[in-house]
C-alpha cells in the first residue's frame, strides 16, 4: 500500500514539470531570445544525456563502452538510420564482451 502511495507521489512530481510548459509557453508569442534559448535545449540536452553516462554504460568496462560509442559515432556519421546505429553499436559491444568472455 505504502509503495503505491510512493508511486503516485512520484507520478505527480514527474508529471507536473512535463505538463506546465505546455500551458505556459504555447500561450503567446515568445520573445526571440527565449526562442533561441529553447532552440538550443535539444543539443544541450543530448550532450548531457550522452556524457558522462555513455562511458559508464557497461559497468566496470569503460573501454568496451567507448568502443561501442565509437562504433555508434562512426555509423551515425555515415548513415542516418537511427535503428542501424543502435543495432551496430550493441552488436559490436556484445561481440567484444563475448570474445573477452565477460
Amino acid at each position: 500500500m505504502n509503495a503505491i502511495l510512493l508511486i503516485l507521489g512520484m507520478m505527480v512530481v514527474t508529471y507536473i514539470p512535463r505538463y506546465l510548459p505546455f500551458l505556459a509557453f504555447s500561450r503567446r508569442q515568445t520573445p526571440r531570445l527565449v526562442k533561441r534559448f529553447l532552440r538550443c535545449i535539444p543539443y544541450a540536452a543530448l550532450g548531457a544525456l550522452i556524457l558522462p553516462g555513455a562511458v559508464t554504460a557497461i559497468p566496470s568496462y569503460p573501454l568496451v563502452a567507448m568502443v561501442g560509442i565509437a562504433a555508434a559515432i562512426i555509423c551515425a556519421w555515415i548513415r542516418k538510420e537511427i535503428i542501424l546505429t543502435v543495432l551496430i553499436s550493441v552488436t559490436v559491444t556484445f561481440l567484444i564482451l563475448s570474445i573477452l568472455k565477460i
Partner: peptide
C-alpha cells in the same frame, strides 16, 4: 549488459546528423 549501450547509441544517432 551490451544492451545497456542501446539508448546512448540512440542519442548519438540523433545528435550526429545535427
Amino acid at each position: 549488459v551490451s544492451m545497456g549501450l542501446a539508448l546512448y547509441a540512440l542519442f548519438i544517432a540523433i545528435l550526429i546528423p545535427e
